[in-house]
């Protein structure tokens, strides 16, 4: 079963850490990624640029219009994801629980990825 682990954090929280803390944090992420690679569970992942670089497309006067800035103004923003293929949902949650952003006031969402296959009812 494939899951996407959505990483939410507060923009700029990294800048408030000491250099050692940042190094430790990136080390933790590397370690998790290495473990997922070695276990054959890693499907993919991407980090997103700072929300300041966001452009949002919305309908205005019946036409799509592009504006600068995110769709939702919020304290926590969607910062990236990793996709995993795990044996159980518990395992996916366990991976999320270890993601360091959680310790710094962020949150992880564990969401099943939809499958193109299906059984007729």
């Amino acid at each position: 079963m494939k899951y996407m682990l959505l990483i939410y954090n507060r923009p700029g929280f990294l800048e408030e850490l000491t250099e050692d803390e940042r190094t430790a944090l990136f080390g933790e992420v590397d370690a998790i990624m290495r473990e997922l690679t070695e276990s054959g569970e890693l499907v993919g992942g991407q980090a997103l640029a700072d929300p300041a670089q966001t452009r949002t497309v919305r309908l205005r006067d019946g036409l799509p219009a592009v504006t600068d800035g995110p769709f939702l103004e919020s304290r926590e923003v969607f910062a990236g994801y990793i996709a995993v293929d795990c044996e159980t949902p518990e395992r996916a949650a366990e991976i999320a629980a270890r993601w360091p952003d959680v310790r710094f006031g962020g949150a992880m969402e564990v969401r099943p990825i939809m499958d193109d296959a299906g059984t007729e009812m």
Binding site: M114, D115, D116, A117, G118, T119, M121
Partner: peptide, 11 residues
């Protein structure tokens, strides 16, 4: 509840 796209469409 389903995680299958064709099942969701049917349901």
């Amino acid at each position: 509840r389903t995680t299958s796209l064709p099942e969701r469409r049917y349901l």
